[in-house]
């Protein structure tokens, strides 16, 4: 028998006795987030083709909603998407699920369970700057919910098309359905939020001690149902928001033609 504890003491990036493909999930997450980051930055940078009005449609890209320029009566020398995008970005960046994914996939802290981390780093977790700022997540929820409310307006607006005389009439296009799916996905994501789960009822120690507590228990139960699949909602809504922008962009550029299901 040798006189070393080498097998047990190994530390450093990637040190593990795991035999499985532990690197696959952080790799896919890394690629998914990088791809979304590149696309969304490019799309926000464009500052055009975010509104499809071809054949009377009114499809507004979620990256450009709400139109803060007309809401606030301001003009900016850059794409106004940047005035909005810090909200969903901050919301997702401080989301408990995304924190887990990027701490693993980007900061390798840890890259996977029972796998070593880069040596020589002083670990403070979320107890010191910068990650202590994650504690403001609930404030991003408040802001993101306002944005989601505007996206609901946009999705409903997408059911109405301008006729030749300029009058609006009800209709459904593929774009309408994409926008509706997107806002449902975003709602499912944000209403399964862990901070919301705490605020609506989780903070109570007794769920049946008053009529208010009993109502809050029901709300907590509702958020819990969505929260159980928070990861899935996070990815579906991330994909859908990017895809909705792409679809509207292609239609507005004339590269793709929206199919009307109900005229």
């Amino acid at each position: 028998m040798s006189d070393s504890t080498a097998v047990l003491d190994r530390k450093g990036l990637g040190a593990t006795s795991r035999h499985d493909t532990w690197w696959l999930s952080p790799l896919l997450i890394f690629l998914g987030l990088v791809a979304f980051g590149i696309y969304s930055t490019w799309a926000a940078w464009q500052g055009k083709f975010y509104l499809d009005t071809v054949h009377g449609a009114d499809y507004l890209s979620p990256f450009y909603s709400p139109d803060v320029r007309s809401l606030l009566g301001i003009n900016v020398p850059f794409s106004y998407a940047f005035l909005i995008l810090w909200i969903p970005l901050g919301f997702r960046a401080t989301c408990y699920y995304y924190r887990k994914s990027y701490y693993r996939a980007f900061f390798l802290s840890p890259v996977a369970c029972a796998v070593g981390e880069p040596a020589g780093r002083k670990y403070k977790g979320e107890s010191a700057f910068p990650f202590i700022l994650q504690n403001i997540h609930r404030y991003f929820w408040y802001l993101a919910t306002i944005v989601v409310a505007f996206l609901w307006y946009d999705a409903i607006r997408a059911f109405f098309f301008a006729g030749k005389n300029g009058h609006l009439h009800f209709g459904v296009g593929v774009g309408t359905l994409i926008m509706l799916f997107n806002v449902i996905a975003l709602t499912g994501f944000s209403f399964g939020c862990n901070s919301l789960r705490h605020l609506v009822g989780g903070k109570l120690d007794c769920f049946s001690c008053s009529a208010t507590a009993r109502t809050r228990y029901k709300l907590w139960g509702g958020v819990t149902i969505l929260n159980l699949r928070h990861m899935e909602w996070a990815w579906v809504s991330l994909f859908s928001v990017g895809f909705t922008d792409l679809y509207i962009r292609l239609c507005a550029m004339g590269i793709w033609h929206d199919v009307r299901i109900i005229h």
């Binding site: 887990k100 701490y103 693993r104 670990y123 977790g125 979320e126 107890s127 989780g202 903070k203």
Partner: peptide
């Protein structure tokens, strides 16, 4: 605050306690 909610505890718990979502995050 040292916990960065990376959920390895939840992954290994043989009693399938939702350690992170139901205890640590709340």
């Amino acid at each position: 605050g040292l916990c960065n909610i990376t959920k390895c505890c939840t992954e290994v718990c043989p009693e399938e306690i939702h350690i992170t979502d139901n205890a640590i995050i709340p």
